[in-house]
Design a binder for these strands. Sequence first.
DNA 1: CTGAAAGCGCTTACAG
DNA 2: CTGAAAGCGCTTACAG
Lengths: 340, 340
Amino acid sequence: MVNRPPNSYDVAKAAGVSQSAVSRAFSPGRSIAEKTRSKIFKVAQELDYKPNAIARSMSTARTNTTQQSGMVGVIVTRLEDPFFSKILNAFSRALQQMGLHVLLFSVESEAEVDNALYEFLQYQVDGVIISSAILSQKMAEGCRQHGTPVVLYNRYTKDKGISSVRVENFEGGRMVANLLVDTHHERIAFIAGAQGEPTNRDREQGFASRLNERGAELYKRDEGDYTFESGHAAALRLLSLAEPPDAIFCASDVMALGVIHAAKLEFKLSISKDLSVVGFDDIPAASWPGYQLTTIRQPVEKMTQEAVNILIEKMENPEQKAQTCLFPGQLILRESVRKS
Amino acid sequence: MVNRPPNSYDVAKAAGVSQSAVSRAFSPGRSIAEKTRSKIFKVAQELDYKPNAIARSMSTARTNTTQQSGMVGVIVTRLEDPFFSKILNAFSRALQQMGLHVLLFSVESEAEVDNALYEFLQYQVDGVIISSAILSQKMAEGCRQHGTPVVLYNRYTKDKGISSVRVENFEGGRMVANLLVDTHHERIAFIAGAQGEPTNRDREQGFASRLNERGAELYKRDEGDYTFESGHAAALRLLSLAEPPDAIFCASDVMALGVIHAAKLEFKLSISKDLSVVGFDDIPAASWPGYQLTTIRQPVEKMTQEAVNILIEKMENPEQKAQTCLFPGQLILRESVRKS
DNA sequence: CTGAAAGCGCTTACAG
DNA sequence: CTGAAAGCGCTTACAG
């Protein structure tokens, strides 16, 4: 049988002090004599004592309004997508840097979000970040009751209590419209991400409305589900038209890659010369020599950092109002769009 | 000010029962009258009561040897690599399915592993999974003291107490050697992953030794760091040789993609005709129409599931011995290697 | 600066 | 089946 790991009483006894003293020694900023502290540390080291974070959070729960469990719940969708794993990594690193711990839930549909949130609340997380999904009004209330701040990433809701950090999708769509009109494309198509998905909707509306403002119009619209395969399939349909498009804007880079593969292999087209392709996100592959995809970059590092900052502010001060933070996308001109 | 969420006493009072009864009602399998239980549930619903998982784990810690905190620590490396995000997703889903919660730590070097482990232990995780990294002997002891099982994924150590799940890297390397010799390649090169990395070492040794057994030899060796860019750069060097290789085996698919881009764009080579390329892992992009990369597939789903099973067995029965589980890689023949 | 004691919200023998 | 009570390992006023 494994004998239980040492607790603060074991250390106290061995060091000849009270248990309170041990507790203080491990709580930065508490009043304790330097001599006592070092003695306690020495003994703790020998016994290989580690403070029990679970017990600590049980105690602090009572008084401390700020950090209680030290855990932040992170809900992620489409984790296998390179863009989203990049986001998770950024969140994870940023949170770790702040001494916070991430309780992760990978969901495959919005329906799973509420359940994940429920579990997070049971675990007394100090805050929640939800990437590319929203929560129900009911769970928003639940979080409010628990005093647990929530920040949405890549999404927003009408609920005034929920913060949101995202890129300006509508504006990003407009930028692409301008680019394709400026370069004199005549049959401009759009391949949408998942149906009814807000991010896609905003990009598409910005794109289509700006096209109209510029006196152009959307030639064709097709739809995928944000995967390479779906982009590839949509391109096959579009390029089989009697009059195929001369430009395709995709709601995401991954789909744009599918389009490029289809155009080059299936139709022997030259990208940019015969067909211009634009993506959104700026994933690593977008800059690979074989792609050189023109796209709208999301400043992921800055955005995730800001989301973490907003969360922490609200954790430290519950009176803090919810915030909405919009980041402009950046047009990255590479080689997949013809010059004029 | 937010008023505190209800606890079991609040529910007990409102339902006219004891706090113990409330606790039992929420613990499956405890003796309680159906009538009492349903009354408690109704009241709990009205008050929006959720059991406090932190408090629960404080209590169960004393008696229950099995699940204590309900949390499993997962340490991942290179999260931005598509193969690794796939692994994390698989772990996350498998653990969630078992009712476990994942405490995530994303590390960027092996040096961070021990610290992550230390934090996990403080949080009383019931088990730990470490993907593609190892732990120090000191932390292995620490885990043993806490009675916390550890399973290594893609790695192994000499420590008899640490379980390991991985693909047969050595054998995988041999399979590729056989393939390239069978198809009569004459100048066979290898691009290694990170220096001294055990996964790479095993693949390379299996590859090189089998080459020799077959009367062939390694023509050239170069090295990257598992990224696309590094594979691309290594290919540039290799293909600039007066006598460039006619086959390149890469320690990972991502690097192989870099090789393909370099060969096609920089050297106008035809993949398979002028140059055969083989990868390892079988990431999604390997099967994209433009790549059709021949590779060794790792059965990720089965492997992660097995790792979770081993972990849970050990969590349920501390007497359970550590296990090592090796999975054979599967040669996936696509179009990137010439037929003869 | 230090210690005794209450309390965080549960679970679980122990009686009844 | 049910309730009173102890205990999980901490933190934190409160006295001294």
